[in-house]
């Protein structure tokens, strides 16, 4: 069992956990992820690592309630435990192994969308420790869903919050802000790292292609084992089949086939929807909805 030493709500549907997982904490690097299971009969859910403390042996994960599994997880409190917590999985971000002198010369812009802000944070923090100040665009639908802004400000160069509805920071999509920064505000970026919903990453890549900025994305397809065994997470990158869990999760965004990846995300949509309904409505759901076969 993997004990939760700190639990807090970051936004109405977003929860933060510090989890005791000494082996993961000792070896993880930015860009990697873990797979967690809440109970003995839960689904395996891949989650990117948000932070880690090697001395305390803890790993931070941030979850958003999107399905039945994550909805249950939200109810976990300090002192509770995850049944399983395995990792770190996937490859670390490329810059972790890059020559520091070259890295310091690069100007990096991170584009974080929604929950994607969580995996962006350890990357920016890691760079900060090496003396590299990266800029960050944090995007959210609305002010209430914008997370980790203060934490990010402490480790980033400039932080540009944006909201789709204009309730906070710049108004509109992250791609507008990115374009404005480069085209109107005289910013120059050598590399862009975009992490968020697939649709956001797709559009960031279209934008950076126009702007001529090489872009790295972190893919989050459906996974089962997360160690290369099942092939559920396969993607087409530059015409080749890649497994996100062992070849990624980070890839050259300009080479990823996003349309295919997004289609593949819908494989279990109906099944997941049913499970969510069942979990939400519990005993009050007695069938008749036409979908649940109940």
């Amino acid at each position: 069992m993997y004990k939760i030493v700190k639990a807090m709500e970051l936004a109405s549907s977003i929860v933060y956990f510090d989890v005791e997982a000494p082996r993961v904490a000792a070896s993880c690097l930015p860009g990697q992820f873990v797979i967690v299971r809440m109970d003995a009969d839960s689904e395996r859910i891949p989650l990117t690592i948000c932070d880690y403390d090697r001395e305390k042996g803890t790993v931070t994960i941030v979850i958003q309630t999107i399905g039945a599994g994550t909805m249950k997880m939200k109810q976990l409190k300090e002192g509770d435990a995850f049944h399983d917590f395995v990792g770190p999985l996937g490859k670390p971000s490329e810059f972790c192994s890059e020559d520091l002198a070259t890295l310091k010369e690069k100007k990096i812009i991170f584009v974080a969308g929604g929950l994607g802000t969580a995996p962006v944070y350890p990357q920016v923090k890691w760079l900060h420790k090496q003396g590299v100040q990266a800029d960050v665009i944090i995007g959210a639908k609305t002010k209430d869903l914008l997370i980790l802004e203060e934490e990010m400000k402490a480790v980033a160069g400039e932080v540009f919050p944006t909201t789709d509805d204009g309730s906070y920071g710049r108004a509109g999509m992250v791609t507008n802000t990115l374009k404005d920064l480069v085209e109107k505000e005289g910013k120059h970026y050598d590399v862009c790292v975009a992490i968020g919903p697939m649709i956001m990453m797709k559009f960031v890549c279209l934008t950076t292609k126009e702007l001529g900025i090489p872009t790295i994305v972190s893919m989050n397809p459906i996974m089962v084992d997360g160690t290369g065994m099942c092939g559920a997470c396969r993607l087409t990158v530059d015409g080749e089949v890649k497994f996100a869990c062992v070849d990624g999760p980070e890839f050259d965004g300009h080479k990823v086939d996003f349309d295919q990846a997004m289609k593949r995300m819908t494989i279990y949509k109906t099944a997941e929807g049913r499970a969510l309904l069942k979990a939400q409505e519990g005993d009050t759901h007695h069938g008749g909805c036409g979908n649940c076969e109940g």
Binding site: G228, M229, C230, G231, A232, V241, K263, R264, I267
Partner: peptide, 18 residues
């Protein structure tokens, strides 16, 4: 280890599994 696929067109369609 890693499952093999055939490398034929359409293998990434929904409903194709290893």
């Amino acid at each position: 280890g890693l499952p093999k696929f055939m490398g034929i067109p359409g293998e990434q369609a929904n409903g194709v599994f290893s």
